[in-house]
Design a protein around this nucleic acid. Structure first.
Length: 272
DNA sequence: GAAGACCTGCTA
DNA sequence: TAGCAGGTCTTC
């Protein structure tokens, strides 16, 4: 569930809650498959005594830098979240100095924690993070034109741009009025520029609003404070099937593109 | 490309 | 009860 804005919100909140600078006193791995590539025991041993020196984000990855020189890369996948309070579905619990406990919660158990010596190696397969300088209009145009693929699955491909997921891709395509099944190399200069701006805009707006969560069930995205994110009212396309397009009033449609639910305006976002 | 795997829980 | 979910990887 979490995409770039949700992961960024979590990183900021963990920093604001003073997780940086704390020492790891104990580690409880309740779902061993969450941890890679070590066994739960070896993983725990490697963490105990280390201090979390910094928390950052690249694409959808959270990076915990440790005083040992190692880093923990955390990918939340579909249902991962963090809390300072215990809850159901806690898969890893870190007890930190100062009486703080960090609870990693993950209902569906898809999330992964990787202990690595050099995060750059793991993150090397990613394209530029969508909210950094490295994500340039020229680079984006080149990447899109070097493939002959439908634009939606290409935007979901983290090696092109890192950070987009199903919600924000639908939002960016709606905003730039591009049909999700258009071929990436058939987009005009103007369309690519519009898409580039839309990507940055929807992600920045998502971050500003603290992320997006639809519905109310507990499988939805939650930030560190347990909140569902204020961006849900701002969504223009995702999950709005049958509701009027804010530009033209046409009922928004839902289809499946590359096995992903896809929301779009059949009038504003014309195929080919 | 598509389909299955990895998982659980909510909705229709 | 079947179908669906914000992600990614593997195997056709």
């Amino acid at each position: 569930m979490p995409e770039l804005p949700e992961v960024e919100t979590i990183a900021r909140q963990l920093r604001a809650r003073g997780i940086e600078g704390r020492k790891i006193r104990s580690v409880e791995v309740r779902w061993p498959k969450t941890v890679e590539p070590l066994s739960a025991e070896a993983f725990s041993r490697a963490l105990i005594g280390a201090t979390i020196t910094a928390i950052s984000r690249t694409g959808k990855w959270l990076v915990f830098s440790l005083s040992t020189g190692m880093s923990i890369l955390v990918h939340l996948r579909m249902s991962g979240s963090f809390s300072l309070e215990p809850g159901s579905h806690d898969r890893i619990v870190l007890t930190l100095s100062g009486g703080v406990a960090l609870h990693y919660r993950d209902t569906r158990k898809f999330g992964r924690w990787k202990l690595v010596a050099d995060p750059a190696v793991m993150l090397a397969g990613l394209g530029p993070d969508a909210l950094t300088e490295g994500f340039s209009l020229e680079g984006f145009k080149t990447a899109m034109r070097s493939h002959h693929r439908m634009v939606k699955p290409l935007l979901l491909d983290q090696s092109i741009v890192a950070g987009l997921g199903n919600i924000y891709v639908d939002e960016a395509l709606w905003e730039s009025q591009i049909h999700p099944e258009r071929r990436s190399d058939a987009l005009s200069d103007v369309e690519l520029a519009r898409l580039y701006r839309a990507i940055r805009h929807v992600l920045e707006t998502g971050v500003r609003n603290g992320g997006t969560s639809l519905g109310d069930g507990k499988t939805n995205y939650r930030d560190v404070e347990g909140q569902s994110g204020g961006h849900r009212e701002k969504v223009k396309a995702y999950g709005r099937t049958g509701q009027p397009c804010e530009r033209c009033g046409t009922a928004l449609a839902k289809t499946v593109v590359a096995q992903r639910g896809t929301h779009f305006c059949p009038v504003c976002q014309k195929p080919s």
